[in-house]
Design a binder for these strands. Structure first.
Lengths: 371, 371
DNA sequence: TTGAAAGCGGTACCAA
DNA sequence: TTGGTACCGCTTTCAA
């Protein structure tokens, strides 16, 4: 009774074969790019297929080819306005390569393991995790099965079995520090995302390193958890203190916007009373009412890198793991006071160009790059 | 264990059966919810499965069950900030029911047919089209195959073979007209989305009906195409005219935000010089810098309706087609001048309550519904 | 170039 | 409750 009504049997290759008067194998070959079929046979098959409305069953195909041409995508949280662009670009690029995205929404704070178990049952050819991670156990298992796993906008600590594509979080943080110091700010604050996020952590680290190089320590710190309301609340508390910061760097644009609202609500002018800088260059960053100065994560380039990693690994699973860091730039708009110099026009937008030797003097060269 | 250059053969039910000393059928039954398996057998199977890292192959299963438990989702454009919430809610609800979303980005202006052909090869159990449509030919074909098709935030003209879930676009437009008239506005303008979108068309129709009922005709009209830059440009042109409108209704929040930026750029104050109203109640609508008065489309309810339609139709494909219109409410914020009365607090937000009899008096019954 | 036949990894029906 | 077996729709040998 709760047995669902039967669906009409779809047209199969056998049906087409019968109608075209050929074998089912011939039908299969006709729909297989490189196969050898006589033009005449081929024509007959195509004609019959058209007449019957035949569509090859990709599920059946992937059972035998062992490739589903499906990529699993787990997304941590979509509220960050950075993601619509990512999803769109990623989906389009993958579609062009003949892959489809199976979408999952995952918790961003913890591991996405339980969900991934489900995804894996679908025999996905690869896995992209955006703003979420997986346990090293599961990562190892994917690796053992030859399923590429790529973290997008996240990375893992130390050596691990997954690849990643991130913006240049650390340098971004450092650049923002240089920029704010050059702008004459003195009292700095940082708003973190979720605590276990490598992205937030690296941005903070770069920021602190940059400030330290200029002799600033003792930065105020609040946690916005990448959540708009929470970000607004902690920003308000920050601005309500006896000596509020004159510069606030938020680990995402989304939180920076909340912070701007909070500042204005307290009668503070942005950037006259307080400079607020974000990270991502999400779509709303350029909306005039916020006009956010922010470190841009180039979506196109990040997606390109992700797809590249995926393709390479699909072709040769034994490739060494890579972690791609896509360079970005500090896009200068109106939410932070401008330094006297260093702002330049690049590709239709204003960016901050740190004076190289001053930067080098301030931050002596360290070893290559800690993992 | 050694080197896994090629993709290692995944663990199959047969492997598990061998290890557990039972038949492959027993393994299958163990992983089939309602099947009859002796506790002892079951335990042995589970143990072997755990040891081997067995995961049932859903692709294989769906080949025989003829149900993929995959729902195809084609999205027209994600830039509208209304969609992140939709995607998240939809994905979560469907996941809870054991369905997954296969994501496709489709052109919003034309039919999504070519893409849908691809989707259908994946044997999806259902299809949700958000802000895009399909040809009636393909719709009929889906229907013939028993594949439910549900339009989300779009509908079709006349009788058709697809179901739809929309907000109450027509009433929304009418309500906004009432609201603006009550607020004392005199020169009205409307910004359309893309021309062939039922959503934009219905909103406009309601708006015009509402205004006409109050004796206003000759509304200025521009087309923003749901595109931010374009919306900003046409809004600017509108505000640059000799007698600019004192009230502008934009068919989406996204465009309304662009319009607010454009108004302010010309030195117009919102709402003192011009009232701007949107549609959707997308996330940024409540951001303080825009504080948009907008007709809310209840995402949760719309998703709920969509999932409901899907489930019902999956269970019984012969059900009559329905078009669900989910009621909304005009959320009153600060981007439009307030009428003297009619604003009330409902569920934590301020909404506009049109006086019913006045509305009825103002709008005399016309012929049933214009085609 | 072609068709027959053996799977791919499961499910479902059957008799035992 | 169990195992044997016939498929699901397609790809891929292999001989002809």
């Amino acid at each position: 009774m709760e047995r669902s009504a039967r669906r009409p049997r779809p047209v199969t290759a056998t049906d087409v074969a019968r109608r075209a008067g050929v074998s089912q194998s011939a039908v299969s070959r006709t729909f297989t790019p490189g196969a050898s079929v006589a033009p005449k046979t081929r024509a007959a098959v195509l004609e019959a297929a058209r007449a019957l409305g035949y569509r090859p069953n990709l599920i059946a195909r992937s059972l035998i080819t062992r490739r589903s041409r499906i990529i699993g995508l787990a997304v941590g949280y979509l509220h960050n306005q950075f993601y619509p662009a990512v999803l769109e670009t990623l989906s389009a690029r993958l579609q062009a390569l003949g892959y489809q995205l199976l979408l999952f929404t995952a918790p961003q704070a913890e591991h996405a393991d339980p969900l991934l178990e489900d995804i894996l049952r679908y025999q996905v050819d690869g896995l992209i995790l955006a703003s979420t991670t997986l346990s090293s156990r599961l990562a190892a298992e994917c690796r053992a099965h030859g399923i590429p796993v790529i973290l997008f906008n996240r990375t893992t600590d130390g050596r691990s079995t997954v690849e990643s594509v991130t913006g240049d979080n650390r340098r971004g943080g450092r650049t923002i520090a240089d920029f704010l110091v050059a702008g004459g700010h003195r009292r700095f604050a940082f708003m973190a995302g979720v605590e276990n996020s490598s992205t937030s952590r690296d941005r903070e680290r770069g920021f602190r390193e940059g400030l330290a190089a200029h002799g600033f320590t003792g930065i105020e710190r609040v946690v916005g958890q990448y959540d708009f309301d929470r970000a607004g609340a902690v920003a308000a508390s920050l601005f309500g203190r006896a000596r509020p910061p004159d510069a606030l760097f938020c680990a995402s644009d989304h939180m920076a916007i909340a912070a701007i609202d909070a500042a204005r609500a307290r009668g503070l002018r942005v950037p006259d009373d307080v400079s607020i800088v974000g990270f991502d260059d999400a779509i709303p960053a350029r909306w005039a009412a916020y006009d956010l100065t922010t470190f841009a994560q180039p979506v196109e380039a990040m997606v390109e890198a992700t797809v590249g990693l995926l393709q390479a690994r699909l072709a040769d699973p034994s490739l060494p793991l890579r972690r791609v860091v896509v360079p970005g730039a500090l896009v200068v708009r109106g939410s932070a006071r401008l330094p006297a110099s260093g702002v330049a026009e690049r590709g239709g937008r204003r960016v901050w160009i740190a004076a190289p030797d001053e930067a080098r003097r301030a931050a002596p060269p360290r070893r290559a790059r800690a993992g």
